[in-house]
Computed example of a mutant assay.
Amino acid sequence: MTFSICVREEYEDEDGNEQRRFGVAVTTRLPAVGTLCPFVSENGAVATQSLVNVELGERGIEYIDDGLAVEDALRSLLNADDGAENRQLHGVDADGAFTFSGEECHGWYGHREGENYTVAGNLLTGEAVIESVAETYAESDRDAPLAQRLIDALGAGYAEGGDKREELHVQSAALKVRSTEDGDEPYYNDLRVDATETPIQELRETYRLASDGFEQAMARYEEAMEADDLDAADEE
């Protein structure tokens, strides 16, 4: 099921405290990929694809949250999976990364691991797809929001040909980002486009609208939310 990227980043928040964020993004020539493949928490990011086993993503994140290293968590799940050779599974945690592509995945398939990120894909037009995803992310401006840069990375892979099944017109894309900062994640950190013929374009537009909406809401409601009194803001 096409291609995805998982990333880990360290950064300083507005108060100068060290924080960490994780992100995962995926696109495919099938609907509703966001319900199946991407999983993230404040401790890691996992993507499960090819012949999807959702449990690998769900339990993988649970194990990472429980303190198991990503390599140990995902390897143990694959060892217990009779269909492991049909799977692609990859992800990152606070300290490491893991990539796996089973020998029965459909070509072109493969994966790549870089500094603080993993990329994997199957049923692609070629290796250039995941190379472009990886390079675009690696060269991205860390001052820009991670969600935006994940969309850019998907777009680069899509431009290289992406999923080779051109006869499948209904496509989808999704992204998820979580951080160790206190408080709710911005609206634009959990987005899905479930059924479209232009998944990257629509995910980018969804991000733009969600980002604008978040800024507008913060401008209007920030003080009221801190005081836990939204009615007060609407009365102004």
Rank of each mutant, 00 (worst) to 15 (best):
V33L: 03
I5G: 00
A159Y: 10
H111S: 14
D184C: 07
A128H: 12
E181N: 00
G114T: 01
A84L: 02
I130C: 03
S41E: 08
G16F: 06
G155P: 14
V170H: 10
D182H: 02
E62F: 04
K164W: 03
A153W: 10
Y187H: 05
R21Y: 01
L36C: 13
Y137N: 04
L77S: 01
T27I: 00
K176N: 01
A232L: 07
A97K: 15
L230K: 05
G57Y: 00
A84M: 05
E167L: 09
G60H: 08
F214E: 15
Q148F: 12
N17L: 10
V133S: 06
M225F: 10
E127R: 14
S211M: 05
S41P: 05
P186Y: 02
Y187V: 12
Y187M: 11
I200Q: 04
V40Q: 02
L146S: 09
R220E: 13
I200G: 07
D234S: 11
L209A: 10
R149I: 11
G126C: 09
M225C: 05
A73Q: 02
T180R: 03
T28G: 03
A80I: 04
E103T: 14
E10H: 03
V7G: 07
L175C: 05
V92H: 05
N122R: 04
R112E: 08
L175F: 04
A84E: 07
G67H: 07
G60V: 06
L203N: 08
G67T: 04
E127Y: 08
D163V: 02
V70S: 01
C6V: 06
G67F: 08
D141T: 10
A224M: 04
G213F: 09
Y158C: 06
R149Q: 13
T2V: 00
R204Y: 04
E104M: 10
G91D: 00
G126Q: 08
C37P: 09
D190M: 04
V40L: 05
S140N: 13
E62N: 08
E185S: 12
D152F: 01
G114M: 00
D81M: 03
